[in-house]
């Protein structure tokens, strides 16, 4: 018969793992053999397990507490924040966020609905974080291939004339200057044979706004004005008589509505 172990059970990680159910199966028989011959270890294990059971049962009584509406509301808020956080990490790093927001919408030809509207399936299994910036870079590359012309902020008169001619539509300036923005550049992008006049603005706080106009085809539905949210940005889109419009900016719905109103006027 083997003598009882003289080790202090409290220092024995194997015994703790046995109590907590984390002991590898291959070690189980050896530890149980030890318990059979070591009354001190056996007693320690029994007591730890008993205390653990008492605390566990005590904790489980929380499950019988009445639902807490405030907790439920906070839980929903947190879920929404974490979803956004996951989407942000998936899509892009902070430096590329603005770029991808506009590029993904305008260049990939998907449109905001196609890209974000199926978010639930996308988020069910997100790729690792390093995929997002690569994706944004890819779209920037694709975007560049679709770009037909670019005009500086000081060439707006020529730009509007040229864009109107190319798009066979009268293209007017979005006129965001009255809201404190300055035009950075204007571009013509063609995706799937559809031309998009895109205007980039920014204000003194370096808040950036992107406006696009594309001809509205007779077969397309009439989109009523709508503001949708993506991360910290929002986008407004709607159909005019001749053109479909999109505005992307940071800020609240009020900001987007003001910007859209200025574009539409």
């Amino acid at each position: 018969m083997n003598p009882p172990d003289r080790r202090d059970p409290a220092d024995d990680m194997e015994l703790m793992a046995y109590v907590d159910g984390t002991l590898p199966p291959e070690d189980m028989a050896r530890v149980e053999a030890r318990l059979a011959r070591d009354p001190e270890a056996r007693d320690s294990v029994a007591q730890w397990r008993h205390f653990d059971n008492l605390l566990h049962e005590s904790a489980r009584s929380a499950d019988t507490l009445p639902p807490n509406l405030k907790i439920a509301a906070l839980e929903r808020q947190l879920a929404a924040r974490l979803e956004r956080r996951r989407m942000r990490a998936f899509l892009l790093g902070p430096r590329l966020r603005q770029l991808a927001a506009s590029v993904a919408i305008f260049a990939a030809g998907w449109g905001a609905h196609a890209f974000y509207g199926t978010g639930s399936s996308m988020m069910a299994e997100l790729p690792p974080g390093f995929v997002g910036p690569t994706l944004a870079g890819h779209y920037a590359y694709v975007h560049a291939a679709h770009q037909r012309a670019e005009f500086g902020g000081d060439q707006m008169t020529e730009a509007l004339a040229w864009l109107s001619n190319e798009m066979q539509q009268r293209i007017e300036s979005p006129r965001l200057e009255r809201l404190g923005y300055e035009i950075d550049s204007a571009r013509l992008v063609v995706v799937d044979n559809e031309p998009y006049a895109i205007f980039y603005y920014r204000n003194a706080e370096d808040e950036r706004v992107t406006v696009s106009m594309t001809p509205r085809r007779a077969t397309q539905p009439d989109y009523v004005f709508r503001v949708a949210r993506f991360e910290d940005d929002r986008m407004a889109y709607w159909s005019g008589d001749q053109l479909n419009y999109t505005v992307v900016a940071s800020g609240g719905a009020d900001t987007l509505t003001s910007l859209a109103a200025a574009v539409q006027e």
Partner: peptide, 23 residues
């Protein structure tokens, strides 16, 4: 007190959501 603590925790978690590392 337990529900108060959980509420406080969730409020802080909402404020810190951007520090959570997805994955």
């Amino acid at each position: 007190a337990a529900d108060d603590l959980v509420q406080e925790t969730l409020v802080k978690a909402i404020a810190k959501a951007d520090t959570f590392q997805p994955g």
